[in-house]
């Protein structure tokens, strides 16, 4: 039964976060959505007219004229989706066996190794990416050591390629894949594995028919948690991809800091947000909400 005092303390406890998130979280998102439907001013800024061609531009129709069809933005959008999906694949392939390995260790070692794996991810993102800049540059660690060993004679240029972006992105997002995978692998019922082996399955059959289906929720959670930050990332492509590997995040940054077309930048952000919402809704429908809590 809710008494008057309960109601009062409930509202006291909830008022700060309600006000704060209402004003400074929902407010900005609303303003951004409104901006995405406004006309860009000639010298930056906005003109308060309804203008839906910001979205048209993303699809290639600037101002709705067929002559101006230019798929450059679609290309960038598709490249971002492709790279984000590839990154999900890479992190999954790298983390799944690692999580299997950790779950097979003794209890003491398990806690320690999980700690050791997550520790570097408390280190600043920009520092972790800087490490890869140092390694992948033509005069960097990889080139220098390979030349020192006599394996290659010319410096190799990995930086400013899609490969470099994928390496950097996988590196910074590893724990978002590893932790959900590990959580679901650890929950695995070991009697199922024994039953499978007793019934004559070889390790690969056990993996395909028992382990993989049972850990699907972990895979889905990891995939969502890696895909979302990959899609809108602009730091990694900026530092490791240069101008050659432009992703949607770089495009947005450009609209705000150099092109000064805020409505178009807002429209691009709204697109990313929509993709995120679709993924989350799909995920919650299929897998349930309990898994998303880390």
């Amino acid at each position: 039964m809710a008494t008057k005092r309960d109601l009062r303390s409930l509202s006291t406890l909830l008022t700060p976060s309600t006000l704060f998130l209402g004003i400074f979280f929902l407010g900005p998102l609303a303003v951004m959505i409104i901006f995405s439907f406004l006309e860009p001013g000639v010298y930056g800024g906005v003109v308060w007219n309804f203008y839906h061609w910001n979205y048209g531009r993303i699809l290639g129709w600037a101002d709705g004229e067929w002559e101006d069809f230019d798929p450059v933005y679609i290309d960038i959008f598709l490249r971002s989706v492709r790279l984000a999906l590839t990154n999900v694949g890479i992190t999954l392939l790298v983390c799944y066996p690692a999580a299997l390995w950790v779950s097979g260790l003794s209890a003491r070692w398990r806690t320690f190794v999980v700690f050791i794996i997550t520790l570097p991810f408390f280190v600043s993102l920009v520092v972790r990416l800087f490490c890869w800049v140092l390694i992948l540059r033509p005069s960097g660690f990889l080139s220098t050591s390979l030349m020192g060993l006599g394996i290659i004679s010319e410096p190799i240029d990995i930086i400013y390629t899609e490969t470099a972006v994928l390496i950097g992105m996988a590196y910074i997002l590893l724990p978002f894949m590893f932790l959900p995978l590990y959580a679901s692998i650890e929950k695995l019922d070991h009697s199922l594995l024994e039953a499978s082996a007793d019934l004559g399955a070889n390790p690969f059959q056990t993996f395909w028919r028992v382990i993989l289906p049972c850990t699907l929720p972990g895979i889905a959670a990891g995939a969502v948690l890696v895909f979302i930050p990959s899609l809108g990332n602009f730091i990694v492509p900026d530092l490791l991809g240069g101008a050659k590997v432009m992703m949607i995040g770089n495009l947005i940054e450009q609209q705000f800091l150099s092109a000064r077309n805020w409505p178009f930048g807002s429209a691009l952000s709204v697109m990313i947000m929509l993709v995120m919402f679709m993924l989350i809704v799909f995920y919650l429908r299929r897998i349930g909400r309990s898994e998303i809590v880390r």
Binding site: F24, L29, I228, P229, N233, I252, W262, G265, S269, M273
Partner: peptide, 15 residues
């Protein structure tokens, strides 16, 4: 927590 950083950053800037 799930909102991509860039979206939140842009929204706050515009706001």
């Amino acid at each position: 927590m799930v909102m991509p950083d860039i979206v939140l950053g842009i929204a706050l800037l515009v706001f």
